[in-house]
Amino acid sequence: MIRNVVVGRVRAGVPREQVEGALAAIVALDPPGCLDMRAGIDAGLRPGNWSFSITADFADADAYRAYDAEAEHNRVRRELFAPISEEIVRIQFET
């Protein structure tokens, strides 16, 4: 299994509702080979935390690669996340 972890820092002044909408859109994609996907806004329990996180578990590396290249996924990244994000970091690892 491949776990994809995405963490983002939101630009100053972006309304919470806009972040929630972007996260809801990414979770709604339901790509083939995705076993589980979750997203959320930081709970504010520690200073300096990033703004949001997305985790997605894929059956294998091929399923992750297909998701990463998928047109709708890339549209959501481009149209919903790029305008609100100051920085995004990612990691994929085997579990």
Score class of each variant (00 low, 15 high):
residue 64 Y to H: 13
residue 30 D to Q: 09
residue 23 L to Q: 00
residue 52 F to W: 14
residue 36 D to T: 03
residue 38 R to Q: 13
residue 79 E to Q: 11
residue 73 H to F: 10
residue 17 E to W: 00
residue 22 A to C: 06
residue 88 I to G: 02
residue 34 C to E: 14
residue 85 S to G: 04
residue 79 E to I: 06
residue 45 L to Q: 11
residue 29 L to M: 14
residue 94 E to C: 09
residue 53 S to I: 13
residue 49 N to E: 04
residue 42 D to Q: 12
residue 16 R to H: 11
residue 56 A to F: 01
residue 24 A to D: 13
residue 12 A to T: 08
residue 17 E to I: 00
residue 27 V to D: 00
residue 58 F to H: 02
residue 50 W to K: 13
residue 49 N to K: 09
residue 95 T to V: 07
residue 93 F to H: 08
residue 55 T to Y: 01
residue 91 I to N: 15
residue 50 W to V: 12
residue 40 G to C: 14
residue 32 P to Q: 05
residue 92 Q to V: 07
residue 42 D to H: 08
residue 48 G to S: 15
residue 87 E to Y: 01
residue 23 L to T: 00
residue 28 A to D: 02
residue 64 Y to A: 07
residue 78 R to E: 07
residue 59 A to K: 08
residue 70 E to D: 15
residue 29 L to W: 03
residue 87 E to L: 14
residue 44 G to R: 01
residue 23 L to W: 00
residue 11 R to L: 13
residue 39 A to L: 05
residue 73 H to C: 10
residue 73 H to M: 10
residue 63 A to F: 07
residue 65 R to F: 05
residue 55 T to V: 12
residue 30 D to C: 07
residue 65 R to A: 05
residue 61 A to T: 14
residue 24 A to I: 03
residue 78 R to G: 02
residue 36 D to Q: 12
residue 93 F to I: 12
residue 86 E to N: 05
